[in-house]
Amino acid sequence: MTNEGARQRIGFGLLLAATLLVVLPVLAIIVLIVTKGWSALSLEFLFTMPRDGMRAGGIFPAILGTFVLVLASISFALPIGVMAAVYLSEYAKDNLLTRIINLAIINLAGVSSVVFGLFGLSLFVVFLRFGVSILSGALTLGIMTLPVIITTTREALRAVPKSYREVSFSLGASRWQTIRHSVLPFATPGILTGAILSIGRVAGETAPILFTVAAFYLPKLPHSLGDQVMALPYHLYIATTQIPGVPENYRYGTALVLVGLVLIMNIAATRIRSRFRRKR
């Protein structure tokens, strides 16, 4: 009896240790960024253009750039991903073609981000002549997030009870009416979870935007989808490795803003999601 109790304590202890080991790096990163970057935060830092070869002034263009890229890529990838997921889980029969498509989606998720960057360069920038632009960058980022959105949407659709569909059919609804009125409304919170996960991914990626949209330095803010933008992750990379003499708190401040921006956008999306949940 006591032996069993001791074993149990050891078992739970190991599980707890593993859990703490997961939390530790996250905590360490946040503490590091906040302590080293906090002093850089100011209204000037957040809302003005860089000065002195980006060694002083603000990072507003990079903040705006990242925000615009997130918005543009999600508004491209969310509808397409959701539509593909609905087709795959509600209409597609289980045949060879469907299996190949599934395999493709899984593989798409496994492709490294720099390959997406090269793909975006050759397809959007060069072949379709969108140039190095917000459009090219957002489309590249969007394709990168498609697997995440498709997978989470399918999970969300699968979580809607089969009985809702049967009730809807039994009341004379067609397949499309059933999806529209008895499946999608109840899957929306889950679908938004996919979108939330994508926000962080899109905001943080450097490689896909490297060749497709990101600018080293721009004296002016963008005003159309055909313009280049600065972006936070790329700016962080430049400030850390390409420009000598950038103050340390400036670099960590940029990282802090990136993390903060993702957090704010996640909170906003979560708010929207809980509003959908409450609607029931």
Binding site: P161, S163, Y164, E166, V167, S168, S170, S182, F186, R280
Partner: peptide
């Protein structure tokens, strides 16, 4: 159906 299934509406 066997179990009552009100839609969440």
């Amino acid at each position: 159906f066997a179990l009552p299934i009100p839609l969440p509406r």
